[in-house]
Amino acid sequence: MSATSIGTSVAGTLRTWRRATPERVWPAGALLLIVAIPVADFFLPPHIHLAHLLVVAVAVTAVHAGPRVTSSLGLLAVLALVVAGAERHTLTTESVVIELVALVVVVAFLVFFTRLRDRREGELARVRRVSDATQRVVLRPLPDRAGPVTLASEYRSADADTCIGGDLYAVARVPGSTRLLIGDVRGKGLASISDTATVLGAFRAAAHRRLPLPELVAYIEDTVRWSLAEFAEPDDDVAERFVTAAVLDIPDDEPVVRMISCGHPPPLLLPGTAAGVTPLVVPDPSPPLGLGLLSADTTYAPATFPFDRGDRLLLYTDGVTEARDRQGAFYPLAERAALRQDRPPEALAATLITEVREHTGGRLDDDMAMIVVQRDRDPSLVG
Rank of each mutant, 00 (worst) to 15 (best):
P306C: 13
R173E: 15
M259T: 07
A301D: 13
A191M: 05
F305M: 06
I98D: 03
A102R: 11
L289S: 12
R156L: 10
R129A: 14
G187S: 01
V217L: 06
A205H: 06
P287E: 01
D159P: 05
R18I: 00
L211N: 02
L33I: 07
T93I: 00
I250H: 06
P345E: 10
S153M: 12
V82P: 00
Y316K: 05
C262N: 11
R68Q: 05
A202V: 13
A65K: 00
G74S: 04
L293R: 09
S192N: 07
V320N: 01
V101Y: 05
A30L: 02
A133F: 06
R209C: 07
A170S: 15
P279N: 03
T134G: 14
V82D: 04
P288H: 09
V224D: 02
L364V: 02
G310P: 01
H64S: 01
L54V: 03
A337Y: 02
T317K: 13
H52E: 09
A218F: 12
G147V: 06
A80F: 06
G122L: 10
V82E: 03
P38L: 05
P302S: 14
D342G: 12
T162N: 02
R340S: 09
A218L: 13
L333F: 14
D365S: 15
A20P: 00
R309S: 12
F203I: 13
S286G: 06
G189R: 12
I37Q: 08
G85M: 09
C262T: 10
Y169I: 06
G290F: 02
A51I: 00
A20V: 07
T114I: 03
P148N: 13
E230A: 14
K188I: 09
S194L: 11
Y331M: 04
L14A: 12
P234A: 09
D184L: 08
P266R: 10
T150N: 08
A80S: 04
T351V: 03
G166L: 12
V25G: 00
E254P: 03
R88N: 01
P141M: 10
R309E: 13
Y219K: 12
M368L: 15
R375G: 03
L81K: 05
L348G: 04
L168M: 14
V104A: 15
D195L: 15
T351G: 07
V382S: 05
R204F: 03
E221S: 07
R119L: 08
V382Y: 09
V111L: 01
T223H: 14
A275Y: 10
A197V: 14
P251I: 13
P212R: 11
A349R: 09
T317D: 08
D318E: 05
S380R: 15
S9L: 14
V55G: 11
V137K: 05
V101N: 03
Y331G: 04
P67A: 09
C163W: 06
D222L: 13
S95Q: 13
S153A: 15
V97P: 00
I48S: 00
V243Y: 10
V106P: 00
L54Y: 07
G201R: 06
R68S: 04
A62T: 07
A133H: 04
